[in-house]
Amino acid sequence: MAEQQRKKKAGAFDIRVVIASLIAIYGLLLTILGIIADPQEVAKAAGININLWGGIAMLAFAAVFVLWARLRPITVPVETKAETNE
């Protein structure tokens, strides 16, 4: 008899969501720093606002990670009481 195992999504405990959250926090901070950047600091980087572009890239990367976790969730087998008593 082949029993079909019940499966459960990992959800918030998926490591991709944790990594995306950390990267999003750093990306948000960099984006804010890029928005309020002093023009003299931007001039040091050849006129490119590195904090702003780096923050936007990190936010986009975090969004891709969350999208990946939602579209391809990790499933974990669920043990029932009948399985644990055997």
Score class of each variant (00 low, 15 high):
Met1Glu: 06
Met1Leu: 05
Met1Arg: 04
Ala2Asp: 14
Ala2His: 09
Glu3His: 07
Glu3Met: 07
Gln5Leu: 11
Arg6Phe: 08
Arg6Ser: 09
Lys7Val: 11
Lys8Thr: 11
Lys9Ser: 15
Ala10Lys: 06
Ala10His: 01
Ala12Lys: 09
Ala12Tyr: 05
Ala12Trp: 13
Phe13Ile: 00
Asp14Leu: 04
Ile15Ser: 14
Ile15Phe: 13
Ile15Lys: 07
Arg16Cys: 04
Arg16Pro: 03
Val17Tyr: 08
Val17Gln: 07
Val17Cys: 00
Val18Met: 07
Val18Asp: 05
Ile19Asn: 11
Ile19Lys: 11
Ala20Cys: 05
Ala20Arg: 04
Ala20His: 04
Ala20Lys: 03
Ala20Gly: 04
Ser21Phe: 04
Ser21Lys: 02
Ser21Asp: 05
Ile23Lys: 01
Ala24Asn: 09
Ala24Pro: 10
Ala24Gln: 08
Ala24Phe: 14
Ile25Cys: 04
Tyr26His: 15
Tyr26Trp: 13
Gly27Tyr: 01
Leu28Pro: 00
Leu28Cys: 10
Leu28Thr: 13
Leu29Trp: 06
Leu29Asp: 10
Leu29Ala: 09
Leu29Thr: 08
Leu30Gln: 09
Leu30Asn: 11
Leu30Cys: 03
Thr31Cys: 13
Thr31Phe: 15
Thr31Gly: 12
Thr31Ser: 15
Ile32His: 00
Ile35Cys: 00
Ile36Thr: 15
Ala37Gly: 06
Pro39Val: 05
Gln40Lys: 14
Gln40Trp: 10
Gln40Met: 14
Gln40Tyr: 13
Glu41Asp: 09
Glu41Arg: 07
Val42Trp: 07
Lys44Tyr: 12
Ala46Gly: 02
Gly47Lys: 03
Gly47Trp: 01
Gly47Gln: 01
Gly47His: 01
Gly47Pro: 01
Asn49Trp: 05
Asn49Gln: 02
Asn51Glu: 10
Asn51Ser: 14
Asn51Met: 13
Asn51Val: 01
Leu52Glu: 03
Leu52Trp: 02
Gly54Tyr: 00
Gly54Met: 05
Gly55Met: 02
Ile56His: 00
Ile56Thr: 05
Ala57Ile: 05
Met58Pro: 00
Met58Asn: 04
Leu59Cys: 14
Ala60Leu: 14
Phe61Gly: 10
Ala62Trp: 06
Ala62Leu: 06
Val64His: 00
Val64Ala: 12
Phe65Val: 03
Val66Gln: 07
Val66Gly: 03
Val66Met: 12
Leu67Cys: 06
Trp68Met: 08
Trp68Cys: 06
Leu71Arg: 14
Leu71Gly: 02
Leu71Asn: 05
Arg72Lys: 11
Arg72His: 06
Pro73Gln: 06
Ile74Ala: 12
Ile74Gln: 13
Thr75Leu: 10
Thr75Phe: 08
Thr75Lys: 12
Val76Met: 15
Val76Ile: 15
Pro77Asp: 13
Val78Gly: 02
Glu79Asp: 12
Glu79Leu: 07
Thr80Cys: 01
Thr80His: 04
Thr80Gly: 11
Lys81Pro: 08
Lys81Glu: 15
Lys81Ile: 11
Ala82Phe: 07
Glu83Ile: 09
Glu83Phe: 07
Glu83Gly: 02
Thr84Ser: 10
Thr84Lys: 11
Asn85His: 04
Asn85Gly: 03
Asn85Lys: 12
Asn85Thr: 07
Asn85Gln: 13
